[in-house]
Every structure is written in C-alpha cells, then in structure tokens.
C-alpha cells in the first residue's frame, strides 16, 4: 500500500518552540500524588528531551495515568513539581495546556455529532476563528485521513477511526508535546499499525511524545526510550535496545549454517571471544564476550573467512516483556524499589 504523503509540516513548524528554549519538553521532579488510602505516584523524577518519543510502561494501577493527568494539568500533585515546555503545571496551567495535546485512554467523543462538527467544536474552543480554524481542521483531517469521513456520525465510526479522530483533536492546536494514554488499547491490528504510523510521522515532525501502553513490543518499535513504572515508582528508564540486551556484557548470536553443526562448534571452540552455547536444528547459538557491534561484525567476517557457510546470523534479544518481568523480579529480590 502507498504511504500517505500527508504531513503536518505547516502546522507543526519547528520541533522545539522558542518559548521552551533549552528546557526539557517534560521534567518531573520528585512528584507524588496520593488519594485517600492510595499512594498513586511516589516521588518519581524523569526528564524527556524535546523531540523524544518516550514509552510509559506499567501494569494497571501503576500510576501511569495519574502522572499523565498531572502533566496534562487535569490533576495536581500532592508534592513535587512537574514542568512541560518549561512551564510549571501547577502555577502555569494555561501555558502548559497550550503546548500539550492530550489523548486519554477513553474515547471522549459525542456520538450524535459528525466528525467535522466535532473537530470544529474543539477548534473553536481552542480559540481558532475564521480561516485559521478552517485551515486547522483541514490539516488535521488530512493528516489523520478523516476527510472522507467528515460527515459521518461519530457513533458510526470504528474504534480505529475514532482513535484517529481523537488524535486529530489532540493535534488541532499544533502542540509541541503529545501525551497519549493507551492509544492502542482495543484497536484491531490494522488500526494499530495505522496509529503507530501516525505517531512515527509526528515523531519525524519533531513532536515530543509520551505514550503509555501495555503492548511493549509496539512501544519498543516506536520509542526512543522506555520508562517503567511500578506501584507509583519509576523502576527503569532506558532505551528499548538496552533493555533487550539487559545488563549482560556479552552478545548471544543465533547462527544458521549449511552443513554439519559440529563444524560450527569446533570453529567456536578455537576462536577467541567466542563460546559455543548450544546446537540448534541447522546451526547453533554462540556467545561473543562483547556487545560492541564492531567485535560482532569481526566475528561474522572471521566465520565466513574460515569457510563456514552462514545463512543467518542475528543477535538474540530478550523480549521487552521478559525484560520488564526480569526487572520486577530484581526489585522483589533486592527489596529496593529502584533498578539502575
């Protein structure tokens, strides 16, 4: 299928606003939020640089939505501070609202309105008037591919179309930071791919995106880094790649060859930095005692030079889900709430 050539170039402008200056897009300092009987968020701190896409991961009730609602000025912290585009969410909520686009985990639409009326209402409510309002609506409809659905009642939209509409609404005022709470929840695979694609486009435009999801593999593909939260505490902040690799200083490689597996085993035994781990149907797993890409590449080159007919050679990574579970396990074992 063709990639859409739609973009938000005109609307989105530069990735970092002048008002934000050099301030991080999102900065959270020792943020806590408690409700009667519930400590939803406990002393969390993190920073998101402009243009980054950050995945916010955690089980239900971990504190993701509460944190996101505070960042969106819809709730207030019990202690600590949060800044979006350099503005304090408590003392300057209006400024924060101007630079964020918020997409909650629920639908948030009016069933008896058409797509066009819905976007028009929010464009008016955001203060757009006259031709500017028309242009904003047109750009958003074009970007989210809703033009053909403009006159359809929202009740008649599929979940995926509805999510695109919600994303369109969040983009109407061309925000610098997007806060998306479980945007892919309940979407079918096709709608999920479409949404992922739109988020990728927004990231290319330089938008900062904070996105929460249960589906870690999807976040891994989209995000520059992942923020794990558990029982109101941030337990890990790092890239998806580092998570997949884990803390290990070695790389596990899956190798497929033509010919005898014993040949691969013998070669590995004689080669420096390489250990043969186990045999598979048409090859085996070897461990290289480095994570440096250059070292891994040199091993592959040597293998070919030594006459092994390699048909597949790839780094075996942990699944993000496994990484998450492992981190939780480490926390339980250590008794400390933090993992470096």
């Amino acid at each position: 299928m063709n990639e859409p050539e739609t973009s938000m170039k005109t609307a989105c402008g530069s990735p970092v606003s002048e008002s934000a200056g050099s301030a991080p897009a999102i900065e959270v300092r020792n943020l806590s939020r408690w409700f009667p009987g519930v400590h939803a968020v406990r002393d969390i701190s993190f920073t998101v640089e402009p243009g980054q896409v950050i995945g916010f991961v955690g089980a239900n009730g971990a504190g993701k939505t509460t944190t996101m609602r505070i960042l969106a000025t819809l709730d207030h912290p019990s202690s600590g501070e949060a800044f979006v585009c350099g503005h304090n969410v408590v003392t300057h909520p209006a400024e924060v609202r101007r630079c964020i686009g918020w997409m909650p985990d629920h639908y948030g639409t009016y069933g008896h309105m058409t797509v066009l009326e819905y976007l028009d209402f929010f464009a008016r409510a955001l203060g757009f008037g006259g031709e500017e309002r028309i242009e904003r609506i047109a750009e958003v409809m074009e970007f989210t591919d809703l033009t053909g659905l403009a006159d359809r009642l929202i009740d008649a939209l599929s979940k995926g179309m509805g999510q695109r509409l919600c994303l369109g609404r969040a983009l109407l005022h061309d925000p610098e930071v997007l806060i998306l709470d479980e945007p892919a929840a309940g979407l079918d695979p096709k709608a999920r791919v479409e949404l992922k694609h739109l988020i990728r486009l927004l990231a290319q435009e330089g938008k900062t995106v904070l996105i929460s999801s249960h589906i870690l593999s999807e976040l891994g593909e989209m995000c520059d880094s992942l923020l794990f939260i558990n029982q109101g505490r941030v337990i890990h902040h790092g890239s998806a790649e580092s998570l997949r690799r884990g803390n290990s200083a070695a790389s596990l490689i899956e190798v497929q060859i033509t010919g005898s597996v014993a040949k691969l085993s013998a070669w590995a035994t004689l080669s420096p930095h390489v250990t043969f781990r186990e045999a598979t149907k048409s090859g085996g797993r070897i461990e290289i005692d480095s994570v440096e890409p250059a070292v891994i590449a040199s091993v592959l080159r040597r293998m070919i030079d030594d006459g092994i007919a390699v048909t597949d050679f790839h780094l075996q990574e942990r699944k993000l889900e496994d990484a998450f579970i492992e981190i939780l396990g480490e926390i339980e074992a250590s008794g400390s709430p933090f993992v470096s």
Binding site: L116, M141, E142, D145
Partner: peptide, 28 residues
C-alpha cells in the same frame, strides 16, 4: 500500512469550509 488518503488537501479544505454555519464569534 496506513490507507492512502481518500482526498487531497484541497478537498479537505473545501470540506472544512462547510463549518461556516455559525460565525466564529459565537460561543463554541
């Protein structure tokens, strides 16, 4: 892959222009 847009930018603009039934000065 995302579906290709059904309409081009000019179409979106002409569709959006239909939202002129109430003046901008009216309360949203």
């Amino acid at each position: 892959m995302i579906s290709p847009p059904l309409t081009d930018a000019r179409d979106a603009l002409s569709v959006a222009r239909r939202m002129k039934d109430f003046p901008s000065s009216f309360s949203p």
